[in-house]
Design a protein around this nucleic acid. Structure first.
Lengths: 187, 187
DNA sequence: GATTCCATGTAAACTGTTACATGATTCC
DNA sequence: GGAATCATGTAACAGTTTACATGGAATC
């Protein structure tokens, strides 16, 4: 499981409080490993109990006060171990693909608006990634860290590019469809 | 929540027993919505209790005997409703991308073999999809159901193509790397 | 002092995974 | 009749999601 390692990575990049982490999981790290604030607080508690992170000594607050964490050597070692370990890729799970497969059986009625909406969402995400690329990875720079992070961003860009193209392709199929199959109802 | 709808789709395509469904979730439907036999049996029980499916009247067996299900009209209606309803796309969660982001901080030591292994796995999956395309979608055929199912298969092919290209790109970066960053250890 | 926002959390419900249990059938 | 396989499940746990709770700080 990867949430603790996502948090360790984020904290190594920059020590943060729970809410700051939550914000960064809404962009940046969250682009390929999302998490809610509830997950993050729970996991911070576990990681601290395991001695992988600690509260920054400068701030030792009460409930409701900001509390920032940093990674301890044991945490960095655990992250390095996990990064190098072998992990099987998780099988794909995509509801839109499932819905189209279902539509082949029960009919395509009503699905087109959501295809358009998804297309817009993916176009927006793609534009955001491109903007990050323009801003953070200007041509010429190539420290190793930059190259690795750029590689990850390229994956996001290429994936969103795939989805926008595929959704456009799907919508094109729809406008060509003669009648709606399967919409004759049960029986 | 999509597992019940994946099962309804599979049962509409062909009434099946739990084990037959499990087999089909290891290929076909499972290529974009995977499930284990435990999930499937639990969900079959729920769907039957809700009146969306029923045991085929021809076979009413005891424990350990094969038991095939079919979809009832209410089940078909629920699937059509779900297919047409609006759903937000789930955010991406990919451990390999996270690992590369972590590698930018803790170093790339040891990650290359698993990149190669993933490349092989994705190449194998891509070959399998292409074989299915060759077998099931010869040029010329285009009933609406076929076109929808082909569209879904194309998504699988394009996604695996993306991953193989991206992993090759990642490995190329690695062979060019001068020194291993971050591997100087904690501090 | 009421409302809103910041920040940290708890609880419960739901999903998914791993390990195990049980009966029926087939094959030697 | 013993072992392997088919087929259907149960139980326990881990991970995720949703709803709610609590306290402090800022603002009106």
């Amino acid at each position: 499981m990867s949430l603790p390692h996502a948090i360790l990575t984020a904290l190594l990049e920059k020590p943060s409080s729970g809410l700051e982490l939550t914000r960064r999981f809404d962009r940046s790290i969250g682009y390929f490993w999302s998490a809610t604030h509830q997950q993050i607080y729970r996991e911070l508690g576990k990681l601290e109990a395991e001695g992988l992170i600690r509260v920054l000594p400068s701030e030792q607050p009460a409930r409701g006060q900001k509390k920032a964490y940093e990674v301890l050597p044991a945490g960095r070692a655990e992250l390095a171990r996990w990064t190098a370990a072998s992990h099987d890729p998780r099988p794909l799970r995509d509801a839109m693909l499932l819905r189209l497969r279902a539509a082949a059986v029960v009919g395509t009625d009503g699905i087109e608006p959501d295809l358009r909406r998804h297309l817009e969402l993916h176009e927006r995400q793609l534009a955001e990634y491109r903007e990050i690329e323009r801003r953070d990875f200007p041509p010429g720079r190539d420290s190793t860290e930059d190259r690795l992070r750029h590689l990850v961003l390229r994956a996001g860009i290429d994936l969103e590019t795939f989805w926008t193209e595929w959704l456009r392709h799907a919508l094109a199929e729809f406008t060509e469809l003669p009648g709606q199959p399967g919409s004759a109802g049960p029986g």
